[in-house]
Write a protein that binds this DNA or RNA. Structure first.
Length: 135
DNA sequence: GCCAACGTTGGC
DNA sequence: GCCAACGTTGGC
């Protein structure tokens, strides 16, 4: 089991919309590193859903329900998508500020490589973020 | 709205 | 193969 974090601008695709949809294919990745991470996702992996720009907080947990396949939104064969379904919203969203302030999370790509939109998390980092959600 | 970080493109 | 120019992302 692996753990991941994906970013979405709520303006483009918000958590609420995701919950309404029941599932979604995660498209729009146009960066090789992010794509490689996307293609490494396995069915059942858990994925934190982060709102970038507006909100700037982790808002929920998703699960991979289908591993990577060619991006249906482009003819370009280089890009891939995965299918995700919502698992649950966090009771309290975990803000970027809070994550930055936590020394155990100082090394995660969200902070060190702010432009990467799909990134792996260690289990302890994933667990830690959920802990922060509980106060 | 600005700008830093950084990935990509294209001329040489 | 280098590097300047350019585009995009995302925090502030």
């Amino acid at each position: 089991m692996n753990y991941w974090l994906v970013k979405s601008e709520p303006f483009k695709y918000s958590w609420d919309r995701f919950v309404q949809d029941g599932k979604t294919f995660w498209d729009g990745v146009r960066n090789y590193q992010a794509r490689n991470n996307l293609m490494a996702m396995k069915t059942g992996d858990l994925v934190l859903f982060y709102h970038s720009n507006e909100g700037m907080e982790v808002v929920g947990i998703a699960r991979v329900i289908k591993e990577h396949y060619p991006d249906p939104t482009t003819e370009d064969t280089r890009w891939a998508v995965v299918d995700l379904e919502p698992v649950q919203a966090l009771k309290v969203p975990v803000s970027l500020e809070k994550i930055k302030a936590d020394e155990r999370l100082a090394q995660i790509a969200l902070i060190r490589q702010s432009r990467l939109s799909v990134m792996p998390l260690k289990q302890e980092e994933f667990d830690r973020i959920l802990e922060l959600s509980e106060g």
